[in-house]
Lab assay of single mutants.
Amino acid sequence: MGFKLLSKLLVYLTASIMAIASPLAFSVDSSGEYPTVSEIPVGEVRLYQIADGVWSHIATQSFDGAVYPSNGLIVRDGDELLLIDTAWGAKNTAALLAEIEKQIGLPVTRAVSTHFHDDRVGGVDVLRAAGVATYASPSTRRLAEVEGNEIPTHSLEGLSSSGDAVRFGPVELFYPGAAHSTDNLIVYVPSASVLYGGCAIYELSRTSAGNVADADLAEWPTSIERIQQHYPEAQFVIPGHGLPGGLDLLKHTTNVVKAHTNRSVVE
């Protein structure tokens, strides 16, 4: 069995187990497998329904001669939608809004960016022009300005110390501490036991640490421990890039980060 097929099978099995364990909360999309990078042309966006009122959005972007996937989250909030992270750029984010209108038909009224990198804030200006209120932590807003990236308009308070959590509509926002970046936030959907790890969490097929220019490698494993301790009931975990899975993604990420750190020390 090929690795790609095995990865998709694991996603399907995880979703099936969740649907059985929580039949009222989960209505997993039966329309197909989780979209992969090879299936999404740059400039297009796919939506994948995880649970009743919960979707991931998947886009792709060219970077350094390669094409990478990027995940975000959409959560229903009454007759409105909360968006977590842009679709990595203005063109993708405009396509995301169009796809949401086509498939869901509810307005996106608020959006949260989970850290300051372009795959999370690139497209904020498109959201703002569409009347979406954009939010991020003060740290993310400051770092985005320093980096020359787009800056969300509103500040999220109460997320300055490791372990801080605040309720934001249908989700809980959690600051686990520094990891992929010093400002990275985690998003949890309690009604569906869905954990969105953003770039602080890796997919299972990833074996290298990737972009760690703004990471705190020493603190990252401790931050992941905080996530595990705060959300032990999480059933569906979405990484910032690639295929979702279960809580095993947290341990896998820790292993990859520690291996990278150990290699760096040896070198």
Results as ranks from 00 to 15, higher is better:
18 M>A: 03
43 G>H: 03
170 P>N: 15
79 D>M: 04
265 V>E: 12
263 R>N: 10
86 T>P: 13
218 A>T: 09
1 M>P: 11
116 F>L: 08
153 T>I: 04
93 T>F: 00
48 Y>H: 03
80 E>G: 12
1 M>E: 06
44 E>D: 12
93 T>D: 00
69 P>H: 03
180 H>M: 00
175 Y>D: 03
42 V>Y: 04
238 I>S: 07
117 H>C: 04
114 T>N: 00
32 G>W: 13
251 K>V: 06
218 A>I: 03
217 L>E: 04
229 Q>V: 04
130 A>Q: 15
75 V>I: 11
96 L>H: 02
118 D>Y: 03
209 A>G: 10
115 H>D: 01
21 A>M: 05
198 G>R: 00
176 P>Q: 01
219 E>H: 15
260 H>Y: 04
216 D>M: 03
195 L>G: 00
159 L>D: 02
244 P>K: 09
77 D>Q: 12
134 T>R: 01
124 V>Y: 15
52 D>P: 07
173 L>W: 01
111 A>Q: 04
73 L>H: 00
59 A>K: 15
255 N>Q: 14
132 V>C: 07
97 L>S: 03
229 Q>W: 11
221 P>N: 05
130 A>D: 06
193 S>C: 11
163 G>V: 09
97 L>C: 05
145 E>Y: 12
194 V>K: 01
110 R>W: 14
167 R>Y: 04
75 V>L: 12
185 L>C: 03
77 D>S: 10
99 E>L: 14
86 T>W: 01
233 E>I: 07
134 T>M: 13
178 A>Q: 12
132 V>K: 07
55 W>Y: 04
237 V>R: 01
116 F>S: 14
114 T>G: 04
144 A>I: 15
90 A>F: 10
253 T>Y: 02
223 S>H: 06
135 Y>T: 04
221 P>Q: 09
181 S>I: 00
172 E>P: 00
86 T>G: 12
180 H>E: 00
162 S>L: 05
4 K>H: 02
251 K>N: 11
168 F>T: 05
107 P>A: 13
45 V>N: 15
134 T>C: 13
55 W>G: 01
46 R>A: 11
227 I>H: 01
182 T>S: 09
17 I>M: 15
102 K>P: 15
190 P>S: 09
63 F>V: 07
57 H>P: 01
168 F>P: 00
176 P>S: 11
82 L>A: 09
111 A>M: 07
223 S>W: 00
183 D>P: 00
123 G>L: 01
244 P>Q: 07
160 S>M: 12
25 A>G: 11
69 P>W: 05
54 V>S: 10
206 R>H: 15
65 G>V: 11
192 A>I: 03
172 E>T: 11
177 G>H: 00
23 P>H: 13
21 A>W: 13
35 P>R: 11
61 Q>D: 04
96 L>Y: 02
145 E>W: 09
132 V>W: 01
234 A>N: 15
58 I>V: 07
187 V>Y: 00
243 L>I: 15
71 N>G: 07
47 L>K: 02
8 K>G: 07
257 V>L: 05
241 H>Q: 01
174 F>H: 06
84 I>T: 14
19 A>S: 10
183 D>M: 00
21 A>N: 03
57 H>D: 07
42 V>I: 06
2 G>S: 13
242 G>W: 02
42 V>L: 13
93 T>A: 07
110 R>F: 02
101 E>G: 05
113 S>F: 04
247 L>P: 08
247 L>Q: 13
49 Q>M: 07
33 E>R: 10
55 W>N: 02
135 Y>L: 08
20 I>W: 13
262 N>M: 06
92 N>R: 10
72 G>Q: 02
222 T>V: 11
48 Y>R: 06
139 S>I: 13
103 Q>P: 11
69 P>E: 05
183 D>A: 01
204 L>I: 13
49 Q>T: 11
91 K>G: 10
247 L>H: 15
138 P>T: 14
263 R>M: 04
252 H>Q: 06
192 A>D: 06
106 L>I: 05
245 G>E: 10
51 A>R: 06
31 S>H: 04
81 L>K: 01
217 L>C: 13
91 K>M: 10
94 A>C: 09
116 F>M: 14
168 F>H: 06
157 E>N: 15
78 G>M: 06
225 E>C: 11
65 G>Q: 12
130 A>Y: 06
193 S>F: 03
48 Y>D: 08
264 S>L: 13
221 P>D: 08
36 T>G: 08
213 A>M: 13
207 T>S: 06
10 L>R: 08
97 L>Q: 02
137 S>D: 04
232 P>R: 10
149 N>F: 14
81 L>C: 14
18 M>K: 04
240 G>C: 01
214 D>S: 13
97 L>F: 03
9 L>N: 10
116 F>V: 06
99 E>D: 14
66 A>I: 14
165 A>T: 13
86 T>Y: 02
99 E>K: 15
10 L>I: 08
123 G>E: 00
166 V>K: 13
249 L>M: 03
69 P>I: 04
245 G>V: 01
260 H>E: 07
85 D>H: 00
53 G>M: 03
141 R>K: 15
24 L>A: 11
106 L>C: 04
262 N>W: 06
39 E>D: 04
111 A>P: 01
95 A>H: 15
167 R>M: 04
61 Q>I: 07
178 A>W: 07
235 Q>V: 05
210 G>H: 14
200 A>N: 02
156 L>G: 01
34 Y>E: 12
182 T>V: 05
204 L>V: 12
116 F>K: 12
248 D>C: 07
209 A>K: 06
225 E>G: 10
255 N>G: 13
69 P>K: 03
188 Y>F: 12
15 A>N: 02
102 K>N: 14
243 L>E: 10
172 E>S: 14
216 D>W: 07
4 K>T: 04
267 E>K: 12
125 D>K: 13
118 D>G: 05
82 L>K: 03
137 S>Y: 02
36 T>Y: 15
7 S>I: 15
217 L>F: 03
98 A>V: 04
114 T>A: 01
126 V>S: 08
70 S>V: 09
203 E>P: 05
98 A>L: 05
164 D>T: 10
156 L>M: 07
240 G>I: 02
58 I>N: 07
47 L>Q: 06
145 E>Q: 04
70 S>L: 12
214 D>F: 04
101 E>R: 05
114 T>V: 00
87 A>G: 07
37 V>N: 03
178 A>G: 09
72 G>V: 00
211 N>W: 13
131 G>K: 14
108 V>C: 05
138 P>M: 14
178 A>Y: 11
25 A>K: 13
23 P>I: 15
150 E>L: 15
20 I>M: 10
201 I>M: 14
51 A>P: 03
170 P>D: 03
83 L>H: 01
77 D>G: 05
226 R>T: 04
220 W>V: 10
60 T>Y: 02
162 S>F: 15
9 L>V: 11
125 D>T: 10
63 F>T: 02
117 H>E: 00
26 F>C: 11
66 A>D: 07
66 A>P: 10
40 I>T: 09
140 T>W: 01
50 I>H: 15
160 S>E: 08
96 L>T: 13
210 G>E: 08
187 V>L: 12
243 L>H: 15
